[in-house]
Design a protein around this nucleic acid. Sequence first.
DNA 1: TAGAGCGTAACACTATTTGTTACGCTATCG
DNA 2: CGATAGCGTAACAAATAGTGTTACGCTCTA
Lengths: 139, 139
Amino acid sequence: MRQDGRLARMIHVLVHMGLLGGRETSERIAQMLNTNPVVVRRTMASLRQYGIVESEGGRGGGWSLTRPLSEITILDVQRALQGETILDAPLSNDHPSCPVERAANAKLQRAFASAEQTLEREFQQVTLAEIGEIAMTSA
Amino acid sequence: MRQDGRLARMIHVLVHMGLLGGRETSERIAQMLNTNPVVVRRTMASLRQYGIVESEGGRGGGWSLTRPLSEITILDVQRALQGETILDAPLSNDHPSCPVERAANAKLQRAFASAEQTLEREFQQVTLAEIGEIAMTSA
DNA sequence: TAGAGCGTAACACTATTTGTTACGCTATCG
DNA sequence: CGATAGCGTAACAAATAGTGTTACGCTCTA
Ligand code: FES
Ligand code: FES
């Protein structure tokens, strides 16, 4: 699974919202991310589906958190954006019947699974509240 | 850093060469990988630069290993293909002066660095000779 | 009822890997 | 010496994924 910038961006947005407390529109979020409201909606939609944020249409609408930053981990955001798989072992599939290819793939898969576990543990340990605190004290 | 299929493919090729003992041409390797000789040369060139294989031109030329499979680890192949960085944390750079973005990036970087260490350890533990043995016994 | 705001489709742009063609250089064989 | 096998490299096409943008529809509230 390809790693992209969505995770970092969404963490930024969520912490921003948690610290400043309020509801934010896609328009305002887009400005703070130097991008476009549609991109924001697209990405935030994943978070909504996972229950981290909710959206309201109509005048006065926008996005808001469904729970405090202390109850959201990086892993939650990651799962919302990319599902179960964090790291995907890049295997080969050129000669599926070849035992060498299969052995190589098996070893790679094992190694990546191990790294993924590490990453998952790290992600689970960090709440967005922590990130907010670090930002507040370093500012 | 994006993960691609080169690592798995090159492991396959190297083990194949180690087990079958001989020199292989780009043409034959390309056939076994369902691809093109140029792609093979391109990728093998990285391995040559790192000292894992050597190439000879002219009639009867081709690629050969510079040392036995027992002295090549997955990490060696990885390093040859992608350099130092195995995993690259996908950070955001939308608002460099914002302390929240910086705090989020810092946490992500730490998490990915940890996972990279795990992966590096795993890669270093596996020699291509091991993969060859597994393939031989499972065939 | 007007307008703010989300939902979504459609398309262009970018970057990276992969695939392909073409051509040049070198070493061996006859 | 000439033909041929083989690598080296440049140039370009194709596929993929994220990103950016425009357009239009729906909903809620003032
Ligand atoms: S711009 Fe609002 S927290 Fe960074
Ligand atoms: S094709 Fe030769 S080892 Fe798999």
